[in-house]
């Protein structure tokens, strides 16, 4: 029978909480910035400007068809060769934003394309300007349509952020690995680390649900 010994875990719980706090900050910042990148990317991808369309298309394809681990190594170990030296936390944030931005662009594009053409024409007929049309007629319904897909991508982003421990960022996964190297209580440590990630996921999805209620509680058009 395996004897659980949680003493090493709870004696160093502050380390794990500190790691979890970095994971939360990193993920939250990457979600907010990633949303901005996604919306801009989707607008560019659906725009009539051919060049813009192609550039964003290339960005999406490159990022979605390469592993995150390689992207983060490129940013952290590769860029210093051309004089750009990013600290581990900053490199991690940029890598996460760039990564989630590519997936988010496609999700947001699907949202924009789901808005019926006739709705936009109706807006034009009512005399709305292009910005007003985008804001009230395209953006909000588009976001509402793809909200579940976008938020699950964000939760996935939070879980993916555990990879940043490979470039020595001090996130929750790295705190767990450090503690494991010190105490060798792998089973207990990763049980608690898993529980903390699960708690963070539930926290974020709770937050997203609350936001959904606040932002999109107007009656559906269909």
């Amino acid at each position: 029978m395996y004897h659980f010994n949680f003493t090493p875990v709870f004696d160093n719980f502050d380390l794990l909480l500190y790691g979890a706090w970095l994971t939360v900050r990193l993920s939250f910042a990457a979600m907010v910035l990633g949303l901005v990148v996604s919306v801009l990317g989707a607008v560019a991808r659906t725009s009539r400007f051919r060049g813009l369309h192609w550039i964003v298309g290339a960005y999406v394809e490159v990022i979605r068809n390469t592993p995150f681990l390689v992207q983060i190594f490129f940013l952290y170990f590769g860029l210093p060769a051309i004089g750009i030296s990013l600290g581990p936390n900053l490199a991690a944030l940029i890598a996460l934003v760039v990564n989630v931005g590519a997936y988010g662009t496609e999700i947001a594009r699907a949202g924009i394309e789901s808005v019926p053409r006739g709705q936009v024409e109706a807006g034009r007929a009512l005399g709305l300007g292009p910005l007003q049309i985008f804001r009230y007629i395209i953006f909000r319904p588009a976001l509402r349509n793809v909200y579940p897909a976008l938020t699950s991508q964000f939760i996935y982003l939070m879980l993916t952020s555990s990879v940043v421990s490979t470039i020595s960022a001090n996130d929750l996964a790295s705190a767990g690995a450090d503690l494991n190297a010190k105490t060798f209580a792998s089973f207990e440590i990763y049980l608690v680390v898993t529980a903390l990630y699960l708690a963070l996921s539930l926290l974020f999805s709770g937050l997203f649900r609350a936001l959904q209620g606040a932002l999109f509680n107007y009656p559906a058009s269909r």
Binding site: Y76, F77, G78, P80, A81, S85, P88, T166, I167, S168
Partner: peptide, 11 residues
């Protein structure tokens, strides 16, 4: 390999 890379790249 990763630790050496950190040194060599100047991180």
């Amino acid at each position: 390999a990763a630790a050496v890379q950190a040194l060599m790249s100047g991180q």
